[in-house]
Amino acid sequence: MAQSNSRFAVIAALIGNAVITVVKGATFLITGSGAMLSETIHSVADFLNQVLLLIGLVRADQAPDKRFEYGYAGERYVWALISAVGIFFLGCGVTIYHGVQSLFHPPELILGEMKWAIAALLFALVIDGIVFFLALKGEWKNAAREGRPFHQYLRKEADPAAVAVILEDGAACVGVIIALIAIMLTQITGHHYWDAIGSIGIGVLLGGIAVWLIIRNQELLVGPSIPPQTREQVVRILKNNPLVEDVIDLRSRILSIDNYRIKADLSFNSRELFKRLKKKTLAAYPEIKSEQDFELFCQNYTEDVLTMLADEIDKIEAEIQRQIPEAQHLDLEAN
């Protein structure tokens, strides 16, 4: 579900930004506005970044093979990181550079044509607003379904592709407002520096978004542990089993938003184990008449212990996966 929501959000943003890029670019050619150029660069960066996000989502869907036995889920983080770096250098870097250049070498603006810039920005605001709302709505539902506070879910558990769309289109809406203010101040005052300041403001905004996304995807590539509440839930399931005496060690890693790897070393309760085998053992005990019978008895008893442990581990794993569907790779060991 999360994967399909992310793909829908990315495709919607991709289409929206393609349309907006054409409109903003045409308007820049008409007006010569630095803020409009910054907004065009912003939209080009968003479009290219969403192409990268879509590539990541498609490649992450590949089935596991001998080369990558845990699957290709990490692909989404690789491409999302490349996307974030692209925002930083193309969106932030070029935009700020152009704004600073405009401060010292003001371009010749066609002030009479600024109404086209305002119209284009209002159109972009509507499109970006719709995409932002759709992406936000999808992740809000996911957070509510998981019973998590939205800001915490967005920070720790949401798909980076969906988060990127939310942040990029949220930033796009704010960027449009900054550009509108800059253009209107330029129109009212006749001072070109407002246009340059607007361009720099948009660049700083993109830089902040890019840094946040880079940090988030870097964490996911390194492999963080599962959320604390999920870890507590796993420990609770393990300790609620009468055969489990203690959880000696528990380690986990998020392979993707819907794929966890969990490894636990367990100490089993020997008394509880014996209780379950007592009846069968007592029934077999009178049959011991010789050393051979004793060896056979020990062999059968050992096999019964191992079989019971294996069956119980299977039941525990099934229960964990029932309550936590993301726990797709479980490794429970007797210690």
Score class of each variant (00 low, 15 high):
124 A>I: 03
187 Q>L: 14
183 I>W: 03
149 P>M: 07
113 E>H: 09
175 G>A: 08
91 G>L: 02
111 L>Y: 14
97 Y>H: 13
201 G>E: 01
207 G>W: 01
192 H>V: 10
177 I>L: 13
119 A>H: 00
204 V>G: 07
141 K>V: 15
171 A>D: 11
203 G>E: 01
126 V>F: 14
92 C>E: 08
146 E>R: 15
176 V>Q: 07
124 A>Y: 09
123 F>G: 02
204 V>K: 09
185 L>F: 11
112 G>K: 13
194 W>N: 10
127 I>N: 00
187 Q>A: 13
203 G>L: 03
187 Q>N: 12
144 A>R: 15
186 T>F: 01
181 I>C: 04
96 I>S: 06
139 E>S: 15
135 A>W: 12
168 E>L: 07
120 A>E: 12
118 I>L: 13
122 L>N: 02
109 L>R: 04
129 G>T: 03
127 I>C: 01
103 L>N: 05
203 G>F: 00
200 I>G: 03
190 G>S: 06
92 C>P: 02
204 V>E: 06
159 D>F: 07
171 A>F: 07
171 A>K: 07
207 G>D: 04
204 V>L: 15
143 A>T: 14
136 L>A: 13
133 F>I: 12
103 L>R: 05
174 V>N: 05
88 F>R: 03
161 A>Q: 11
185 L>C: 10
180 L>F: 00
181 I>D: 00
210 A>C: 05
177 I>N: 04
151 H>E: 04
188 I>T: 10
179 A>C: 06
134 L>T: 10
176 V>M: 08
105 H>N: 15
211 V>I: 15
104 F>E: 00
197 I>D: 00
208 G>T: 06
165 V>P: 11
92 C>V: 00
125 L>Y: 05
93 G>W: 04
189 T>I: 10
187 Q>E: 09
207 G>T: 03
130 I>M: 07
91 G>M: 03
160 P>M: 08
183 I>C: 08
159 D>W: 06
106 P>Y: 02
102 S>W: 02
90 L>R: 00
140 W>L: 14
119 A>G: 08
147 G>L: 11
166 I>N: 11
208 G>A: 09
